[in-house]
């Protein structure tokens, strides 16, 4: 049995979703065109994950096993639609950046996976920590990937476009939009993801050797 701290921290490295669990790759590849897209998607997923984890954990003794998946989906979908509407209303630019991938959180395997594998078997406190840890790990991974791709692709880092918090790291010449557009194109996502997987494996291999 993990301690409560471990329950939270496991999602940040040991089970970080896109790299270790290799789950939720669809949004990972699709929305990490920018730093903002990365963390926005991550936080939206985290919100849904935490809410659905808590609710499912609370209802775990009431839900009949045979219809549990259907119930989970209804709960998850509700939170997703709430997230979508709220984001459209208050962070329209971010919502536009993420587009159809916000509704698609419903089918993100991470969320259903945590609901099925964790929340339906554990108490509310643990489920909350688990959801938070995995969600933040997902956010971290997406933000790093998005930041890397955006930096290489455009030379900029959009922290939060709505608040004009963009940073220009590499200034571009007049009338130029992109530094290296390939990186923000879909194939670039594969290459970056591959590079990060390589890096993760190298690091854990080295630390395993050191241990």
């Amino acid at each position: 049995m993990r301690t409560l701290t471990q329950e939270f921290t496991k999602g940040l490295w040991e089970q970080i979703p896109p790299f270790r669990l290799v789950l939720g790759l669809c949004p990972t590849l699709a929305v990490t065109k920018s730093l903002e897209g990365g963390w926005g998607m991550g936080l939206a997923t985290t919100f849904v994950l935490v809410c659905s984890n808590i609710l499912i954990s609370a209802l775990r003794n009431v839900i009949p096993p045979k219809v549990r998946i259907a119930t989970f989906i209804v709960i998850i979908a509700t939170f997703v639609v709430i997230t979508e509407l709220v984001m459209k209303a208050y962070t329209p630019m971010l919502s536009e950046t993420l587009g159809v991938f916000i509704p698609l959180i419903v089918v993100n395997c991470i969320i259903l996976g945590r609901a099925e594998a964790f929340a339906s078997k554990n108490g509310m406190g643990r489920s909350l920590l688990d959801g938070l840890g995995i969600g933040l790990g997902f956010t971290l991974a997406l933000a790093v990937l998005g930041g890397l791709r955006e930096l290489l692709g455009t030379g900029k880092l959009t922290m939060f476009a709505q608040a004009n918090l963009d940073l220009t790291i590499i200034p571009l010449g007049e009338g130029r939009e992109f530094l290296f557009k390939f990186m923000v194109d879909p194939p670039g996502a594969f290459v970056c993801l591959g590079a990060m997987l390589l890096l993760m494996n190298l690091i854990s291999e080295r630390s395993a050797k050191a241990a």
């Binding site: 009431v62 259907a70 639609v81 709430i82 509407l85 709220v86 208050y90």
Partner: peptide
């Protein structure tokens, strides 16, 4: 019954949020 209740509550919640956000959007 359980599924129905869950779906009903979900519908209520969504209707509320939708009503609040539509004009803003």
């Amino acid at each position: 019954v359980v599924l129905g209740i869950v779906a009903f509550l979900a519908g209520l919640a969504l209707a509320g949020v939708k009503g609040m956000t539509t004009p803003i959007i």
